[in-house]
Design a protein around this nucleic acid. Structure first.
Lengths: 349, 349
DNA sequence: CTAGCCTTGTGTAACGTAACACCAACGACT
DNA sequence: AGTCGTTGGTGTTACGTTACACAAGGCTAG
C-alpha cells in the first residue's frame, strides 16, 4: 500500500528522486542519498504500482496471444514457448482461449485494446478479419501464426507460419506413394485459414496424381460455435466411424491435426480395424503424444520452437520499430515424420 | 486515442455525465442528453481506458492462475475451465507457467501484486510457502487447487482439491486386488504437496497390506529446476526403462500422473514388454488421452470441471467477502477409472 | 411569496507514477 | 567580483478515469 510519496517522505527526498532510483537513473546521485532511498524502499516494502506506471507511460510490455484452446496440447505447448520467448525480451503474455469463435476473438481484442495492449499473436487465424477491422484501424498490430498474408487484407502486420499446402502435399504424397488411392480427410469445421489450405492442397495433389477425389471421404465435424479442442479427439473418433462404415471405406485418412488423428486411431480400433494394417493415419503438428502413442503416429511436424521465437521477435520488432520491418512474413518448411501409423494398403501388399 | 474529455466536448456535456453514461448510471438523465452522449461515443469510436479505470478504482477483476505448464494437457484443460468459470463471474484470468520453480512462482506473484491482482489460484502448490510469505502479508489471497491446508501455515485462504491420499489408495488397492505385490512408483521430483501425498499414501497402503515396500521401485526424475511438463512423458519412458531392467522388476507401476503413465507404457513396449500382460500401469488425472490411447489407461480421475468451478467461486467469495467465507476448504473424492492398462500379473494368472 | 425539494446535471480532487523544466550551491576561471 | 558550468537534486503537470460534493432551475406546498 506504500506509494512513492511515502518512500520520499521517509527518505527525506522528493518523489522525483525516488522515481529516479526506481528507474535506475542514479548515475549522478550521491551514494548516501541513494542508500537512504534504498533503505526506505526496503523498510516500507515498497514496490512500484504497475498500473500507475502504465497509465503514465502509455506503454505496456504485454503481448496478447489468442489461441483456440490451451486444452489442445499443441496450443498449450505453443503458448508456453511464446511466453518464454517473450519473457526473454521483457514482455509478458496474456493468453486467451477464443475457441475459434470470431465473436470471442473480437471481444478479447477489444478488451486487450482497452488495457493498452497493442500487439497480438493470432494462433489460428480466421478466414476473414472483418471482425477485427476496428482494432486494426485503431493501431493494433496483429501477427499470424498459421498463414501468410494472402487474404488477410492488410490486417496482419507480420506472420510466421509453416507452408500449410506443402505440409498437406507431403502427407498425401506419402500415402499415394504407399499405394493408397482412397484417402479420407477428417477435420473440424473449416473455419480457419490453415484448415482450408490443408484441404485444398490435398485435393490438388490427388488431382495431379490422377486420383478420383471422393467428396464423401471428407468428414467435417458439425459446426459448433465455441467448441474447445478437448473434444477434438472425440470428434475424430466419430468421424472415422462414419467413414469406415461406408460401403467403400477409405484405406487411409489424413487428419487436420494430431488430436483428430488420435481419435481416428482409437475409433478405428473400436470397430475392429487395426492401424496401420487396415487403415493408415497421418496427422499434423507432431504433438508430443504422436511419438509415444501406439502405434506411433506418422505426422507433419511444425517447427514450433523456431516459429514461436520468430513470431515474438517479429511482433516486437513491429511494435518498437519506427520504420518498416524487414521481411515481416516468414514461411517455414514443415517436415513429414514417418512413424508406424502408415503402411501400404492390404490388398496391394 | 479519444478520451472521456473528447466525448464530453463533442456532446457538449461534462466529463462526469459521460462517466455516468459509461457506467450505466443514466436513470435520472434526460433521454436527449443520453442520446447525445451515446452518439458522441459512437462517432469518436470511444472505449474507456481500462488502465485508468483500474488506477482510479484500485480494483481489478482479474485472477491469477499459476500452473506448472499449460503444455501438460491436464493443466491446459484446467486453465481453460477456470478461465471460463471466471468469465461467467466477470473476471479475467492471467495464466502463468511457473514450471514448479519456487523462484518463478515468487516472481509471478510479485508481478501480479504490482498489477493490483489480489487473488491467485495455485495449481500445483509447493511444499512450503516461504517464498510467497511476503505477498500473503501484503494481502494477497491464495487458493490451492491440489491440497488442503495442512502445511500451508495459514498462507492459503481457500482450497479445492481431490483427496490425494484416497486417490493413491484406490490405485494401489486395485493393483493389490489384481494380485500384484511388486509395485513401482514413477514421478518427477517430489516438489509439490500433491506428489508427496500420493507417494506417502501408497507406502501406507502397501504396509497395511503386509507387502514389502522396496525403495528401489521408486523412480524419481532427477531434480531439474524449471522443467516444463512437455518432457514428462519422456521422463516416464526413461523411468520405466530403469525399473524394468532391474534384476527383479515390478509387475505394476503407479505413475504420479497420466503423462508419466503414457511414457511408461511407451517405454515398456520399446523394451518388448506388453501392457497390461507384462506390466500394469495406473495413472492419475484422467486426461483426455487416457481414454483414447492404446491400451486405454486405468487412472484416477479428478473431477476437474467441478473443482475448477469451485475454486473460482471460493476465491471470488474470499476476495469480495467482508467477513469469513463459509467452508473455505473443500476436498472432493477422486474416482478410479478401470480401463485396459491393468491386469493380474502373469505368474499369478 | 418563499422555503424546500426534486431533477439534471457540473466542477474538482483524487489514484500512483514519470517527464520535464527548473533551481540552489559551489568551485573555477577570467 | 562577476559569470559560467556542474553536481545533485526539486516541483509540477499530465496520464484517463471515478467519486463526491455541490449548483442552477423549476415545481410544489403552506
Amino acid at each position: 500500500m506504500a506509494g512513492i510519496k511515502d518512500v520520499a517522505k521517509k527518505a527525506g527526498v522528493s518523489v522525483s528522486t525516488v522515481s529516479n532510483v526506481i528507474n535506475g537513473r542514479h548515475a549522478k546521485m550521491r551514494a548516501e542519498t541513494l542508500k537512504r532511498v534504498e533503505t526506505a524502499i526496503a523498510d516500507l516494502n515498497y514496490t512500484p504500482n504497475a498500473v500507475a506506471r502504465q497509465l503514465q507511460s502509455g506503454q505496456i510490455k504485454t503481448l496478447g496471444l489468442v489461441v483456440p484452446s490451451v486444452a489442445n496440447p499443441f496450443w498449450g505447448n505453443v503458448s508456453q514457448l511464446i511466453e518464454k520467448e517473450a519473457q526473454k525480451r521483457g514482455y509478458q503474455v496474456l493468453i486467451c482461449n477464443a475457441e475459434r469463435d470470431p465473436e470471442m476473438e473480437a471481444e478479447y481484442l477489444s478488451s486487450m485494446y482497452n488495457s493498452s495492449i497493442r500487439g497480438v499473436i493470432l494462433g489460428s487465424s480466421p478466414v476473414t478479419f472483418d471482425h477485427l477491422r476496428d482494432r486494426v484501424d485503431q493501431g493494433m498490430q496483429i501477427a499470424a501464426f498459421d498463414r501468410k498474408t494472402k487474404g488477410a487484407q492488410g490486417a496482419v502486420s507480420c506472420s510466421v507460419s509453416v507452408d500449410q499446402a506443402l505440409g498437406a502435399r507431403l502427407a498425401i504424397r506419402h500415402l499415394i506413394g504407399l499405394g493408397h488411392t482412397r484417402i479420407g480427410f477428417i477435420s473440424g469445421p473449416i473455419g480457419t485459414s490453415s484448415r482450408s489450405s490443408r484441404l485444398e492442397s490435398m485435393q490438388e495433389v490427388m488431382g495431379k496424381a490422377g486420383l478420383e477425389f471422393d467428396e464423401d471421404l471428407i468428414w467435417l465435424a458439425p459446426e459448433v460455435v465455441g467448441f474447445g479442442d478437448s473434444q477434438a479427439a472425440e470428434l475424430g473418433r466419430t468421424g472415422i466411424r462414419e467413414l469406415m462404415t461406408m460401403d467403400n471405406p477409405p484405406t487411409a485418412v489424413f487428419s487436420v491435426n494430431d488430436m483428430y488423428a488420435i481419435g481416428a486411431c482409437s475409433g478405428a480400433r473400436e470397430l475392429g480395424f487395426s492401424v496401420p494394417e487396415d487403415l493408415s493415419v497421418v496427422g499434423f503438428d507432431d504433438i508430443f503424444i504422436a511419438k509415444v502413442m501406439e502405434p506411433p503416429l506418422t505426422t507433419v511436424r511444425q517447427p514450433v520452437e523456431q516459429m514461436s521465437a520468430m513470431v515474438v521477435a517479429k511482433l516486437i520488432e513491429t511494435l518498437e520499430a519506427k520504420g518498416d520491418v524487414v521481411d515481416p512474413h516468414i514461411e517455414l518448411r514443415p517436415e513429414l515424420i514417418v512413424r508406424a501409423s502408415t503402411a501400404p494398403p492390404k490388398n496391394s501388399g
